[in-house]
Design a protein around this nucleic acid. Structure first.
Length: 705
RNA sequence: GGCGGCAUAGCUCAGUCGGUUAGAGCGAAGGCUUCAUAAGCCUUAGGUCACUGGUUCGAGUCCAGUUGCCGCUACCA
């Protein structure tokens, strides 16, 4: 019986486009694995879909004036198209907003509930009567229970660093409207992970030896302090919790998202005309289940979801979790908001998808974070795809076309040492590439593949058919014949990685493309058939060179786009990303005031138009955690400035006070609000922003120099 | 703050159970070749294995600490 494997890739969140990092970490490795396994004769089902629930989608949809469903639908289509363009082919690509997913999730929940793995607990939660909603930690401010600092956040105090529950805050206020928040009991449901711990331990003990370091480490850490985890939240967009007293509550997205793999499989089964056909893919103990994900998702896939599966009353199989690290872009993290990203659509319009697939595979972040650079892309295309594979195919086929009238010659002489060496390298390569892929390392596999290419080029180099053509035509024909065998094997082996190119090689070799790879098996590649007498197809270059100027232009374009986004007000900017915040946090510990900067000329300083301004109005920017929108009165003028100081200042604190304002900074949109300059602030020993103000009142608009 | 992962040549990365002289590709330097898209093949140079200490006959590898990068720790997904 053929091996049966269920493969999933992390469900992309339908809140924006996917980028190269996602592709390299979760989708491409899975697609390669699936194609490879099919070639080995395994039955494989590859499912995915968009994750469409949760607050971010609800909020962004509101901002876009759409319903969450409409909003998510747009991104679902967009994401689907991106996959399509990269030749990433799922057997089914579903949506968590579909009824079949809701049904599946409810059934899953009921089984857990009936099994006693779910319990309810009431806890006080802060509520804003004015905004009429419950307040998550970061929407609350109040005084620190330890040091009394007045502008403490909902989870910790920026002044003394103490962390606590939001309900411990003194005088809690809603950050959005500034009004006092009240305590209300709120009931939530929890997944009883400790109860499932023994089963989890058995599962982990069996898998750990084969799993990657990063996965084992994460899981061990989490298991050491296993606690029940809330699976519900107060929100309207999501799957309603089907219990008495759970009105207005939905499942927290992490609960329903992984179930999406199962509902996507069920959807596939329905489309096959057999609604029960999903079961073998999830419940047959002989089936292998593999989740391809990024490192941010390890605990959910290697621990929480398995716990949910173990808590079912049906015999679910448990997954392998090859988690990848993250891919960076030209030395920085991908960031859509900072303009630091590559649009997949644009990229694929310029460069063939196979070049992307190859580059991302060769630089895949399997054991540590890795990087995509245009320079690296150029090398992979010019030196590897073109120089190694493309050159071999082209030089040999052109040779066949010009010297053998387009018909592959028979091996008229016995194989010499060169031919034997090449075939041995091929056999070894087939073995090694397969092993690497079985171990979920497409990156290593691609490296081995390249070695087969080197061996192929070396065959021609060593056996020199173009010279022997005159003095030893029989041997020349043998070399060409063997080279063509290698080429067909190479086409087959390349199929999982660069399927379009694989088919083009097959076509040029004179094989029927519709039937490639057809019924060929991976193992066939080790002993290729004799192609003697076959007429080859039209010979064309497989790849186009990428010139230095192109690389320079691409990098330039990327920097230019990011440059507009980069120059923000310093407090606002540093508060923008979690990463930046952490970085700053650590820096601060070492050398509190950052080191001196390079000397500048007086003119450089004079270029700054610094003014005293009065805050006329202040309000928080909707949907932003850290931003306040300030109306500044600068002499006669009014200016709008967005500043990332919400964690430390409430709107009431600010109105009426004077600040120092940098007036001629290029305007920049933050969270949809145009910020015309920045207000200056110092950073205190607790990393909190402290606004600067004149030592005594001066007329607003006064110059600062 | 707590925790996990990572740090090896100019660049991108291999390095098994601790074992001789730490490997590959790109880039650089030199050579060969002209069938092939300035593609191919050969050769050479290039390393204080982040740092400090420890265990050991022996450490890139094991242990502790330090530094840096990334991630997790939320009603963030």
């Amino acid at each position: 019986m053929p091996e049966r494997i269920t493969v999933t890739s992390a469900l992309p969140y339908a809140n924006g486009p996917i980028h190269f990092g996602h592709v390299a970490g979760a989708y491409l490795p899975a697609d390669i694995y699936v194609r490879y396994k099919r070639l080995t004769g395994a039955e494989v089902l590859f499912v995915c879909g968009t994750d469409e629930h949760g607050a971010p989608i609800q909020i962004n949809a509101e901002r876009a004036g759409q319903s969450p469903a409409e909003f998510a639908a747009r991104w679902h289509e967009e994401i689907k198209r991106s996959f399509d363009r990269l030749s990433i082919r799922f057997d089914n690509f579903s949506r968590t907003s579909r009824p079949i997913h809701h049904e599946t999730t409810l059934a899953f929940f009921r089984a857990l509930y009936a099994g006693g793995y779910i319990f309810a607990k009431s806890e006080d939660q802060l509520h804003c009567d004015h905004c009429q909603r419950g307040l998550p930690d970061r929407y609350v401010t109040g005084s620190c229970p330890r040091c009394g600092y007045e502008a403490a956040r909902g989870d910790e105090c920026p002044k003394c660093g103490h962390s606590f529950e939001a309900t411990e805050l003194g005088d809690p206020r809603c950050k959005t409207c500034g009004r006092p928040a009240s305590k209300r009991p709120s009931r939530h449901w929890y997944l009883d992970l400790p109860k499932l711990a023994p089963k989890l331990e058995t599962y982990h003990a069996e898998r750990f030896p084969r799993w990657r370091q990063n996965v084992v480490g994460e899981v061990k850490k989490y298991m050491a302090d296993l606690r029940p985890r809330a699976i519900t939240r107060d929100l309207s967009w999501g799957i309603p919790v089907p219990l008495e007293g759970a009105e207005g509550k939905v499942f927290y997205v992490w609960f329903d998202a992984p179930i999406g793999y199962i509902s996507s499989t069920r959807e596939w089964a329905v489309a096959q005309g057999d609604p029960e056909a999903w079961r073998p893919w999830w419940q047959d103990p002989q089936t292998k289940l593999v989740h391809f994900i990024g490192k941010d998702n390890i605990v959910f896939h290697a621990l929480i979801f398995p716990a949910m599966l173990l808590g079912q009353d049906e015999p679910y199989i448990l997954p392998d979790v090859p988690a990848n690290e993250f891919l960076n872009l030209e030395g920085r993290k991908f960031s859509t908001s900072e303009g630091w990203f590559i649009s997949i659509d644009e990229f694929v319009a310029k460069y063939p998808p196979d070049t992307v697939r190859w580059t991302l595979t060769r630089s895949a972040p399997e054991t540590r974070d890795s990087e995509f650079t245009y320079r690296d892309f150029q090398t992979r295309v010019n030196a590897e795809l073109l120089g190694c594979f493309g050159n071999f195919v082209n030089r040999m086929l052109k040779f066949v076309a010009s010297r053998y009238d387009g018909v592959i010659p028979a091996a008229e002489a016995p194989f010499g040492p060169e031919e034997e060496a090449a075939l041995a390298a091929l056999a070894r390569g087939v073995e090694e590439v397969g092993q690497a892929l079985d171990g979920y390392s497409s990156r290593t596999a691609a490296g081995r593949l390249l070695e087969i290419g080197y061996a192929a080029n070396k065959l021609i180099e060593d056996a020199q058919p173009f010279k022997r053509l005159k003095d030893d035509p029989a041997r020349a024909a043998t070399t060409v014949n063997v080279a063509c065998r290698l080429m067909e094997s190479l086409a087959l082996l390349l199929y999982p990685f660069i399927p379009q190119t694989s088919k083009r090689i097959a076509a040029q070799l004179g094989l029927a493309v519709q039937d490639f790879p057809g019924s060929r098996r991976w193992s066939d590649a080790a002993r290729p058939a004799d192609p003697a007498g076959r007429r080859i197809g039209k010979v064309k270059h497989l790849f186009r060179r990428i010139e230095d100027e192109t690389v320079a232009a691409e990098v330039e374009a990327l920097r230019a786009r990011a440059a507009g986004a980069a120059q923000t007000a310093s407090p606002a900017k540093e508060a923008q990303s979690k990463g930046a915040k952490k970085k700053k946090k650590k820096k601060k510990k070492k050398d509190a005031p950052s080191g001196p900067r390079a000397e500048i000329a007086f003119e450089d300083f004079a270029a700054l138009d610094l003014r005293v301004a009065r805050v006329a109005a202040a309000e928080s920017v909707p949907g932003a955690d850290k931003l306040l929108r300030l109306e500044l009165e600068v002499g006669e003028e009014r200016r709008t400035v967005v500043s990332g100081i919400k964690a430390w200042y409430t709107p009431e604190d600010l109105v009426g006070r004077q600040v120092i304002y940098l007036a001629n900074l290029a305007p920049r949109k933050l969270r949809g609000v145009l910020s015309q300059g920045m207000v200056l602030a110092a950073t205190d020993e607790h990393d909190a922003a402290v606004l600067l103000q004149p030592e005594r009142e001066v007329p607003s608009g006064a110059r600062v120099s």
